[in-house]
Amino acid sequence: MIPSAEKIEIVRQLQAKIDAMQGLGKPLREPAHGDLAPFTAAFPGQVFPTGAIHEFISYEVTNAAATRGFITALTGRLMRKGGLCLWISRNRDIYPSGLRNFGLEPDRIVFINAAHPKDALWILEEALKCEALTAVISEIRELSFTDSRRLQLAVENSGVTGFIHRLCPRAENALACTTRWKITTLPSVSVDNLPGVGFSAWDVQLLKVRNGRPLSWQVSWSGSSFVPLGEKNNSEPLLNKRYTG
């Protein structure tokens, strides 16, 4: 028997409610980030969860830079319609000029340096409670399950999207975050076999996702969108704008 359209609609609504209860963001959010393909395939309802906490782990400084780029690109997508984001870090080593290439206006970010992990955690929690922000990016090394639970509760109320970037954590302990990602660098993608360094490419591993299926992708950032490797780059190449020695 084929279920009626009415029933499908009821099931869809119930599913959305369940997702909301499970900390997968607010169900009635407009899909402003439909262009987060190809990653949406892994998530329930094919929607990238906002109002949730995403955890990123990296161990080397180069992979950390790649993770930063990836987070910036995601945040840039979320902030297409304006908004403000907070970036909490330990050191002043983020170079705002470099973030522009990932679709995020650097002057829309407020950087906060918190040398002490305790302060950083306090600021992170306060920031995640502030509905006026779109996203909060935080570079914290260690996070306990209890703390992550509190952060999760904060975003469930406020709808802020949190990105936690853990560089060299002592253990990959279980957290109450919605997802866990690992980004590693891949050889860059040249367009039309031109010499030199091409577009940044990453191996994106989604290790954990609540209610979805963990996947991994190999993508490159074309300057305006994610392009899965092995596919033809359809977006307008920015090569003419790039400076190549």
């Binding site: 403000l84 970010i109 407020v110 906060i112 918190a114 502030c130 006026a132």
Partner: peptide, 24 residues
Amino acid sequence: NDRKVAELLDRVAAKVNPSNISRY
């Protein structure tokens, strides 16, 4: 929203030194 952000930043500034909050 701006007021909320400004108040959040004030609270952060009370916690860490205001020189640690920057926008470029």
